[in-house]
Every structure is written in structure tokens, then in C-alpha cells.
Design a protein around this nucleic acid. Sequence first.
DNA 1: GCTTGACCCTGTAGCAGCTACAGGGTGCAT
DNA 2: ATGCACCCTGTAGCTGCTACAGGGTCAAGC
Lengths: 137, 137
Amino acid sequence: MKIGELAKATDTQVETIRYYERIGLLSAPGRSAANYRIYDPSHRSRLSFIRHSRQLGFTIDDIRSLLDLADHPERDCAEADNITTRHLRQVEAKISHLTRLRDELVRVSGRCRGGLSSDCQVIETLADHGHCTAKHE
Amino acid sequence: MKIGELAKATDTQVETIRYYERIGLLSAPGRSAANYRIYDPSHRSRLSFIRHSRQLGFTIDDIRSLLDLADHPERDCAEADNITTRHLRQVEAKISHLTRLRDELVRVSGRCRGGLSSDCQVIETLADHGHCTAKHE
DNA sequence: GCTTGACCCTGTAGCAGCTACAGGGTGCAT
DNA sequence: ATGCACCCTGTAGCTGCTACAGGGTCAAGC
């Protein structure tokens, strides 16, 4: 299949596929006489794997390791679990950070009573960190 | 004060301060005879405002608008509230996205029973989107 | 008076993960 | 023959910094 078909089949942008090839995540396929990339089903499943992993938020580097494991069936599966668990911890950390952020934003935006920006409590709060309940970084 | 002192006072990196000046977020201060940047208290409070807003996750563009409002006390405060509310919605969307991600990751990593990567359910799941409970983008 | 070290300067390149051109070639239908 | 959709390469841009390289300045200590 040509790159556009692969793109449609995997819900990926054409440019993204070429990008994955450039960084060595997806192996270079054969070429047609007109120098068009021609992909086979193995490319398709590999790209699906990559896209799925990206949707789950894995980094490109993580995906490299995961693909490597998938290519070596004799290796220990624990490695895959390590990557997943580490990633899960990071996602959880992000959630808790954003939750604190959200609480602070609710507090800040609740202060707006309309009127002139000279009296704006939102702007006031941003100017003076002392108005905050919690520390946030 | 010199840039290093301002950096310490506002818990900002020196390079970040120069970056803010370069992108026009922080106005260029005067210079000493040796061409050193010399800041006054107004720069300090402006930078505090910026840093505080960044900690709350506002984009540089949002901060530009917020600073603009702070500079024009006769303008309507509603604009500041709009920016804050919009940002709050985005944070909430991010939280719910990450929460769905987390649930899926818990499900995926729970499948690992150790053993060879050829039997790895983690890798299996990544390869086949059909294993997922929910759709995730 | 000379060196050492901490600070300051400019300018540029890098990070992640794409995305968006510009400027060109190919293939098929009308 | 011409139009259009697709393909190619190469490079620059996005966000918000961060990290150099390669140089100047200044005060303290010997």
C-alpha cells in the first residue's frame, strides 16, 4: 500500500509516518518505480502498535523499547511491565498536579465579580502569590 | 538589581528572564555602564505576575492578555475571567483525558503475569487495539 | 599588579513530537 | 492536454524554556 492508504488505515498523518521513518521508529519500506513508499502488512501492524502506544501517552523512547521487546520473544516480559508501570506513575503524578491546579483556578476565577479590571480579583491574585491557599509549582 | 538577583528573588532562571525579554513579555530594563541589565521593583512585580501565571498553567499568550488588562484598569474585568475560565476548562479536559489514560494503563499493566515477552499481554494489548475497553485518543 | 572566580553579555542550537510549508515529480481521468 | 490528487525531499515552525560557546566585567585575595 502507498503512504496515503497506510495513513488512512492507521488514522495517522502522512507526515507523521515519514517522521517515524526519519527517526528510525518505523523501518523504511520498499519503493515503487516512481520512488513511492510501498508498505506491507507488517508495516501496518507496527504502525498500529506505535500509534496505540502514543495514544496511551508512551514516549517515543518507551515505544522503541517496547517494539524491541516485541521483536525478541525470548526476553523477559517484566521489562514491558516496568515501562508501563513507570509511565502509569507519571500519568498519576500529572493528574494530581493538574487537580491542584484546577482547584486553585476555581478559587481564582470565583473571585471575579465583574466590573473594572482595576478592581479585578483575578489579576490581583495573579500579582500577589500570597493570595493563594496552596503552594503550587 | 542585576539579573541574577532578580532571578533569585522571583525563583526564575536567568536564561528564562532573558527569554521573556526576547519575546517581549518583560520589557527591556536599563543597562549599566558595563551593559548589565538593571531592574527596578516594577520589573520584579511584573515577573512575579508572569511566573505565578505560568505556575497556574496559563500560556504565554494568555499572560500577554492578562498583563495588558492589568495595565489598563479602565477595561472590563470580564476578559480576565474569560481567560481564566477557558483555561480552567482546558485543565479539566486534560484531567479527564489523563484519567481515562490511567484507567487503561492500569488495565494493561494488570495483565502482565511475568514470563516471556512472546506471551506478554502488555505487548499483545498494544499491538491490538481491540483489547481495549474504551476508545482513547 | 595579577589572578581567580562569580557574575554578566550575545547568539545559536536543542528538547518532544509532530505539523506545515515550498518546490518539485507521478499517475490517472476527462 | 490538462487538471487534480497524490507522492517526493528538505527545511522551518510550534511551546517554553534550557544549555551551551565564546567572550567581557568586577571585586577579593595574594
